[in-house]
Nucleic acid binder design. Structure first.
Length: 730
RNA sequence: GGGCGGUUAGCUCAGUUGGUAGAGCAAUUCGUUUACACCGAAAAGGUCGGGGGUUCAAAUCCCUCACCGCCCACCA
């Protein structure tokens, strides 16, 4: 039996004295790795960490996910599950490259083209490694019980193989294709981006109403007159009698000195009441117009290049940026008496998430994932579809959730997910940046070959582009477990039991993981998706680094302790809802950590040498213990339903207001009592209650509870609170 | 335009299937009798956004309106 020394409890709880030390004890014990857990841990339970981007440091969003996931993982581990929480980081392609590029440009005035591919990648590699190290240490300081022996990186060798295999299988199935499409071009980042990487910003714009020229019978409206050099049609609503006589005709005209051949077409998407009810169709510079063009067999005329400069127009226009050209064109129209009206309107402008640049739709040859293409489901004995059944990727994504194989919490997000899939278009996966997985396709004189290495023979050149970072993170649930190799980890831990992540990346990531897993493995990637909300500042607005409203989680833990921050991130944070994080809230839980510490001191110093035997309990104390266990049962069920916000609050409330305020106060006289059996009973009761509460609190406040436990049970690794069995005597 | 969330004590938020309104923080009064002042006790504070309905009973279910926030679509 461990000889209890309560002297460390004499002063107030100081998180700094214990945290790094205890984390090391946990790590050294090996218990973060499920393979090392005691034999009672048989049934697997798995979570993968959403890999933080190697773009810098940990923010409150990371702290939130770490607090929630670690609480769940510690709970499951104590319950006796063979618990795996697998860590990793994300190379985050465009985010990382643009960050490094920005720095190089600022410090050295050089662009990526000055450095060249190899040198830029070398620099990014250094930056990524530094960020990685910082982030890993920060994850550890949050107390995260991650299995570091299985750490993964989206760009490491194993993940690289997985990405290649995914690409190859989809390529050969015709689900990845190369095609000429109007894509979202980011003129600042000089790359394509997917529809999901667009952020709409409301801005004021001028709606110009005019005619191309005097001989053209229809007046049109646009906010971008400079694109009209690329018009090949005018579209009107089929029921619009004003223009019915022109439909089907092609009119030769000109625009600011450039000849145009305009076909008048009818299309249901045109609003009769907007502007003049007629719209100039620019197939090369608008996705909507592109669709009309394909339906009506219209030619594409590109008039803007990748730098966002004009390639068509007069001397005074060619080479100008679009915004400048717009003014020149408008002035010409005014001068020629063609301008009918100029009106201010507010308009949603598409901007690039990462660079903030206004998106320029351009026709380009790019790689896409076909989400609507039918194919035969290739897997045997799967519940999501029958082998050979005709399905699309969309079908599979739908079925994952509709079938109940994956449950989304809170369930209202299931509707959001379904709606997104319905509207999904082919996913553009090629990027013109250098940091990332190079597209594994090789070309030679019209031949195309898909492979990691060039085929035998000379003159094969690899596709210059890299893959969208979400293509690789889409494989995360299984690439982290060793796929495409048939590993025992994959058999044991896939599908993951839980995916816990921010509600803002349900489309980017959750949906893509479902796509990849249902297609490549034939089943869902995880059984449950738990979406947490955003950590907001005290003002209720999104924290922003540039506005200085971002809380640095490490500064907060420095001040109040990690347990305090973890509690502040969990209590009152209902699934899916945004929540505010502020100093006072964290402070309240620092006080709670101290309360636990002091109450423990009282109990331990008054029960030295006393036995723990429930048979010694008086009738009344039996009832008190039973009342606690009713609450504990409730708490257990809350955690199992992932209602951590309820469980944590109940624990807080019981510990403080029942255990400390009532029971401890009562025992003060009982410990002095002449009635030996009553005194004994009080000692037994208080020890049991303390132990069971420490266990129950451990997932939420691992450090202070482990520190007390250590005083009670010594420092043998088998006695770590980390692996003590969850109380089940309800 | 479509959808979702929110509106509960001064502030920040809980409230699981309808059954007498809860917590933390702040503010008030009192209290340092050996766990803790990073404390305790007491009292105070709400017609649960407005209106209507269902019910013996509504913060909770239904309808409607208002305001705040978010997401999706993209009317040129």
């Amino acid at each position: 039996m461990h000889e209890r020394d309560v002297s460390p409890l004499e002063k107030p709880y100081d998180a700094k004295e214990h945290e790094a030390r205890l984390y090391k004890r946990w790590e050294d014990s090996g218990y973060f790795n499920p393979d090392n857990l005691p034999p009672r841990h048989t049934t697997p339970y798995s979570i993968v960490l959403p890999p933080p981007n190697v773009t810098g440091t940990l923010h409150c969003g990371h702290a939130t996910m770490l607090a929630i996931q670690d609480a769940i993982v510690r709970f499951k581990r104590m319950q006796g599950f063979k618990t795996l929480w697998l860590p990793g980081t994300d190379h985050a392609a465009i985010a990382t490259q643009s960050k490094v590029e920005k720095e190089i440009s600022k410090k050295e005035g050089k662009s990526r083209y000055d450095l060249g591919r190899e040198e830029l990648l070398r620099r990014i590699g250094i930056f990524a490694q530094e960020s990685h190290d910082t982030i890993i240490n920060q994850c550890k300081s949050m107390g995260s019980s991650l299995d570091w022996s299985r750490e993964a990186f989206t760009l490491d060798e194993t993940r690289n193989k997985a990405v290649y295999r995914a690409f190859k299988e989809m390529y050969h199935a015709g689900l990845i294709y190369r095609g000429q499409r109007v894509i979202n071009w980011d003129p600042k980042g000089q790359t394509t981006i997917s529809d999901d990487e667009i952020v709409y910003e409301e801005r004021e714009a001028t709606l110009y109403t005019f005619k191309y020229s005097d001989n053209f019978p229809i007046t049109i409206s646009t906010t971008r007159p400079e694109t009209k050099f690329g018009d090949t049609a005018v579209a009107v609503h089929p029921d619009d009698e004003r223009y019915a006589a022109f439909v089907g005709k092609t009119i030769e005209t000109s625009f600011c000195g450039v000849p145009l051949s305009i076909k008048v077409i009818a299309d249901r998407n045109v609003e009769k009441d907007f502007g003049t009810g007629a719209l100039g169709v620019t197939p090369a510079h608008s996705k909507v117009d592109e669709e009309m063009a394909r339906g009506n067999d219209l030619p594409f005329v590109q008039v803007i290049d990748e730098k966002g400069r004009m390639t068509v127009g007069g001397e005074d226009i060619i080479g100008k940026k679009t915004a400048e050209a717009r003014e020149i064109v408008a002035q010409k129209l005014r001068d020629a008496g063609l301008m009918v009206e100029e009106k201010k309107i507010t308009q949603n402008v598409s901007t690039a998430e990462r660079t903030g640049a206004i998106i320029e739709p351009l026709p380009k040859l790019q790689w896409f994932v076909a989400v609507n293409k039918e194919f035969q489901f290739p897997h045997k004995n799967k519940t999501i579809a029958k082998q050979g059944e005709m399905v699309t990727l969309k079908t599979l994504m739908h079925r994952a959730v509709e079938s109940g194989a994956t449950t989304i919490l809170p369930d209202r997000f299931a509707k959001v997910y379904e709606h997104w899939i319905d509207n999904l278009r082919d996913w553009c996966i090629s990027r013109q940046i250098w940091y990332g997985h190079r597209i594994p396709v090789w070309y030679k004189e019209g031949e195309v070959y898909c492979g990691l290495e060039a085929p035998a023979g000379d003159k094969w050149t690899q596709d210059e582009d890299t893959l969208d970072t979400w293509f690789s993170s889409g494989t995360w649930s299984f690439s982290t477990l060793g796929w495409p190799n048939d590993t025992s980890d994959l058999k044991t831990y896939h599908p993951n039991d839980l995916l816990e992540t921010g509600r803002d990346i349900i489309f980017f990531w959750v949906a893509r993981m479902i796509l990849m897993s249902t297609y490549l493995l034939g089943g869902v990637p995880f059984k449950t998706v738990y979406l947490h909300g955003l950590a907001l500042g005290k003002d209720g607005k999104k924290m922003s680094k540039s506005a200085g409203t971002a809380l640095d989680p490490l500064e907060v833990t420095e001040k109040y302790g990690t347990d305090a921050l973890r509690m502040a991130l969990i209590v009152g944070n209902a699934p899916g809802n945004d929540f505010r994080l502020y100093d006072d809230k964290v402070k309240a839980y620092k006080h709670f950590a101290n309360k636990i510490w002091n109450a423990s001191r009282f109990v331990l110093s008054n029960t030295k040498g006393a036995q723990i035997d429930e048979k010694l309990l008086t009738e009344k104390d039996v009832l008190t213990l039973a009342a606690w266990r009713v609450i504990l049962k409730d708490i257990t069920e809350d955690i199992e339903k992932y209602n951590l916000h309820l469980a944590s609050e109940k624990l807080y409330s019981y510990f403080w207001h029942t255990f400390a305020d009532v029971l401890i106060e009562q025992t003060k006289s009982r410990f002095q009592s002449e009635d030996i059996s009553d005194k004994q009973s009080a000692q037994v009761l208080m020890q049991i209650l303390l132990e069971e509460q420490l266990k129950a609190l451990h997932p939420f406040m691992p450090f202070v509870t482990e520190a007390v436990w250590e005083i009670m049970h010594g420092d043998a690794k088998e006695n770590l609170l980390l692996i003590q069995p969850w109380t089940t005597d309800f």
